Amino acid sequence: MTQPPAAALCQAVSLTGRHARLEPLSPAHEAGLQDAARDGELWKLWYTTVPHPEGMAAEIQRRLGLQDKASMLPFTVFDDQGRIAGMTSFMNIDDAQRRVEIGSTWYAARVQRSALNTECKLMLLQHAFEQLDCIAVEFRTHRLNTASRRAIERLGAQLDGVLRSHLRMPDGTLRDTAVYSITAPEWPTVKTHLQWQLVKPR
């Protein structure tokens, strides 16, 4: 594959599947994102950094500011009914090494444990490997966020290691960060696995 220009890693794009749609994050999505965040009150989970509804406008601007600096490509997640269901992003974009992280992801409680997350990850990974020619895609989460770690492992990502005392959380505690990745040679197998996850009987 011919390597795309570095700027392509930060170029806004829409991705559409059967269960979900990813659109470039916009301030116009604020009200829908506030409603999604209220569904499950996810900001109350101490080991995550889901924005409070009252802080959603600031979070949108933070992510768009990182996009302006070419370090993040943020998306709003829509469900199959066209309702806003959460946020996700390409982040920690490394143009030189063709690496990205999929992260800063959260979903309304109503779509959790549904096909939506699997399809979102499939679309993002497919774009990263097949359009952006990435050599690896990372996933990072709190070492103690067992639900998130199980979800990442179900995608087919492998644990690279744990960064101890890596980040300070909003409540002042130190986060050990579990780092996972999928590499380009692994992608065809992971893609087949994710496609099966979407069609297998539930």
Rank of each mutant, 00 (worst) to 15 (best):
V162D: 07
A178V: 05
K121W: 02
L163T: 09
C134T: 01
L125C: 11
H19G: 10
T76L: 09
R62Y: 09
T48D: 13
Q67P: 06
L194Q: 06
R150C: 11
M72H: 09
A70Q: 15
M91N: 03
L124Y: 06
W187N: 12
P51G: 02
S181V: 04
V179C: 15
T16D: 05
A85C: 01
L194V: 05
D133E: 14
L167R: 10
D160M: 07
R113D: 08
L9D: 03
G55T: 01
L155H: 08
A96G: 02
L15F: 13
Q34K: 14
A151C: 03
A147P: 10
T173S: 15
R18M: 04
Q3M: 10
D176W: 05
Q158T: 15
D171I: 02
V162C: 13
A108V: 14
R164A: 07
A157M: 15
Q67F: 05
T49Q: 05
V77H: 10
Q34Y: 07
D171L: 09
S181R: 11
G32E: 01
I84N: 04
V190T: 11
L159S: 05
T88D: 08
R63F: 12
G82R: 10
R202A: 14
Y47G: 00
E41T: 08
A58H: 04
A96Y: 01
D133H: 11
D35F: 00
M1Q: 10
E101D: 07
A178R: 05
L116P: 08
D133I: 02
R110M: 06
V50N: 01
D95E: 13
A7D: 14
R38L: 12
T16R: 15
Q158W: 02
A70E: 13
E59W: 08
